[in-house]
Nucleic acid binder design. Structure first.
Lengths: 199, 199, 199, 199
DNA sequence: AATGAATGAGGTTTCATTCAT
DNA sequence: CATGAATGAAACCTCATTCAT
């Protein structure tokens, strides 16, 4: 089995698997279909991945790692608490769009992970959420949002995650609008001059 | 096959199926497991349902019908726009908790429905969402929220739906708190006296 | 799965499996081949047996149970120590011939049994060998064979078991001759009037 | 492919294969396992052997050639018929112990040989058995055993072969005891002063 | 309504073998 | 001699579904 986990080839295969798992679901996607879409024989799949299950893990992990990376980059440039919250929301939407397949799979197929895989990914997820926790805490300290027991944060993240269910990048809404409206809701603004002024 | 779709027996079977589909997923739950939990043999299942797929349909339909019913009852008693919005949010949470299995299945297994089943359920869902659309429109008319192109509504509903991922009824948060915070966010309030005032 | 372990049907299937395992080996015999020879589909096999492995167990167990039964019957009628030894040898040869398939499989495929199955069959085998131990002990007590540390018994049993490698029932040798020669060797006789005087 | 069939390297590989085939069985031992134990990659195996099957042949052939060699050496020094019989039995046990892996494989995996391989090995086996035939004939001529149609020879050889099933070199029995008891049984003696005189 | 044996297509995975490097 | 990715056939087993009883 090919142990080079970051090889270009492997990343391609993971991306293809992400698309198929997203479109058809993990259980419904057969390894034969996976292989066919990858342009190899079904037996060859198992040189790259131990298991069908390991493919699922690789897909979800790749999405999470990318989310983390984008979030860190976004925060690197933003200075004020509000700007950081906005940047984080936009980064979240950004990876939700760029790596949509992987994130949809993460949501839908979480259950199909092995216990071990899940434990590893829970760590990644916790690390990501702690970034959000921190940024919102900064907003609180700045008096932008008077209190938070994590409830608003959770609702806001949920609202964002749920966008994969209905948001289409080719529709009239821009990601920036989503991010702005969400920040407004989080900070308790009525969003007077909100989205789509020209519509 | 039992054509009496609302029989007590059938409702029991649907509830059992909902639980299993929720816990294990539709694809992973075998007809034999379903039958075993129902106390019958696998062959007998097909006297009640044409298909495995029809069981899935019945599960999701039951959740949606119940959601609609609860929403209508809640609105029946609420008069002001804000009260109606609050009532609707609470009704949504209420069915999300009462019929959690069915709603989780609806979210996760939507893809596994046949085209015909899905089309029928889309109608139900549209009917339900039009209730939300209407109530928020009333709020706009009352000047509570200056504009809305559906974005806030969608974000709010998404936030609510996502609660099935993390909300636990036996935790410290009461459903009323969730509903209140959500209404605050929707209406652009800073939620000064927010959650858990008595705790 | 059909739990009626002694059903006529099951015994037929076991006999067929014994033949195939004997001819081709356990690993080499596919479940499809098994099913084809049984006149059913490969999937149907698993109504009768949980596993391919369980079929192997059933084959070997059947041979052992039959061996025990025949030995007990033979001893039931034999009175003197020597007669009992002779009866036992002949019973051994008898089951070796009647249930040749099963016994060959027992010898060759012992390794392919699961640990659990093997443990159960070891008990059966021990019970059978204790019969031999007892009968030879009677011979010693009668002064027919002066000593035995189990060595002669083991060599004799080994000689008998090995007959499945070369003995053919349609050849010139009669089972009685085998049994007689073996008893002679065990008791230290020169077998003056030995086999096939007319050949 | 390495044509030097007697190279030191090749003999090492054959010995490793013998051990694995003996422990796990031919069918169950994968080419990858073989290669891993040999410290090479699976693809490299096929530089040394054409086939997996050829490895099996090499294993069994090596055992047989060694058996023949030891037997010839033993007979070279023994003069009287009885001494020669004893020497042969001991040589047989000797190779059974020294080359146990190969001989166990010969017994168990005979079936897995290709027809061609088997034919070649049958010749070797016949050559070996003719040695036994000859030595026993000498005993008959010397009046040590009055007659033999091959039956006693076969039983005795079977008893010896079967020892691989139960004999452990680290147990209390010495190979000489086995050989002596066997000769006694063959020659029809009661083995008064038999095994373990010193124990 | 219920049973449960039987189906048969299709699932994941293994494995001996090849071949370009 | 050695590698290791790729092959592709075939292995065991599962499972929704049917049907005679």
């Amino acid at each position: 089995m090919n142990k080079n986990k970051n090889s270009k080839r492997r990343q391609e295969l993971v991306a293809i698997a992400a698309r198929l798992f997203c479109d058809q679901g993990y259980e419904t996607t057969t390894v034969r279909t996976l292989a066919a879409e990858m342009g190899i024989q079904s037996g060859s799949l198992f040189h790259h991945f131990k298991d069908k299950q390991e493919i699922l893990f690789a897909v979800i992990e790749s999405g999470m790692l990318h989310a983390m990376e984008i979030a860190r980059q976004a925060l690197y440039e933003a200075k004020t608490p509000e700007a950081r919250l906005y940047a984080l929301a936009q980064a979240h939407l950004s990876t939700l769009l760029q790596d949509r397949d992987a994130h949809v799979v993460a949501i839908y197929e979480w259950r199909s992970l092995s216990d071990l895989s899940r434990a590893h990914l829970v760590e990644l997820r916790d690390a990501y959420e702690s970034i959000w926790r921190e940024v919102i805490y900064e907003c609180q300290q700045a008096g932008l949002v008077p209190d938070d027991q994590g409830l608003r944060r959770r609702l806001a993240l949920g609202a964002l995650n749920w966008t994969v269910q209905w948001y289409r990048p080719d529709g009239p809404l821009r990601p920036e609008d989503l991010a702005q409206t969400l920040v407004d809701m989080l900070l308790g603004r009525t969003a007077v001059a909100a989205v789509l002024p020209s519509a």
